[in-house]
Amino acid sequence: MSVFESFKYKRKDTFIHNLDPRTKLIMVIVLSAVSLMFFEIVPLLIILVINTILIAIAKSLREWYYTLKGLLYLLILVFVFNYFLVSPIFGIITVLRLLALASSFSVFFLTVHPDDLTQALIQMKIPFDYAFSLSLAIRFVPTIAQESQSIMDAQMSRGLELQKGSLIQKARNYLPILVPLIVNSIRRALQIAESLESRGFGAEEKRTYLYELKMRFSDYLVICLFLASFLLLLLDRYFLLQYLFS
């Protein structure tokens, strides 16, 4: 269980999981924008609470816990750094911002299947070739991760010690890992291209799509809610709503 746990999709049946990926895209954009817009503790805490509730609705609190555990050292480092460089308050604020951003992205990645993301992009008129490239990249991430582990094993078996030496030495040590990884990736890409051709990729201009995304009432509702809140917040933040009501 690693820090990446709440950025991996898991198939579950929850309200959030069942929302259209486009809806969730808007959600994550709004949530991230708000996380970056505010420099006060209260708004950031509110975002964090909202995100935690969303993650809870998505029945994924356990995954979020592992990510938090993994981020602990980073957060402490950030806090201490900002505490001494700027001020204690700023330390807390930066940590909260990081958490707000991380949780916003989590809501997205926990609940959106990468194939659905691709489909969302396609239905938003992004050309199939580009959307599919993204999908392939996501699909091969675990494969390449495993391969880099195998490569490390193989090079360690030749005496390579990744932890030893100066910073420069450590950087040089990664060359025997990177070169085979890159070469193999290129080879793999060629094989994938051959397979794609053999499976009819590009045969017809207009493809069929097995799963087409359809927006439902709940999607529109959530989008309106988020966009409305975002608008209000924007007004409050930059145009001081007080003036409107005074």
Binding site: I151, L175, P180, V183
Partner: peptide, 21 residues
């Protein structure tokens, strides 16, 4: 460590492209 043990035990992995560089 693996490096120390590798002086005694040589491990030849299945796929040579995993470590030629």
């Amino acid at each position: 460590s693996v490096a120390q043990l590798s002086r005694k035990v040589g491990y030849v992995f299945q796929n040579p492209d995993r470590f030629l560089f």
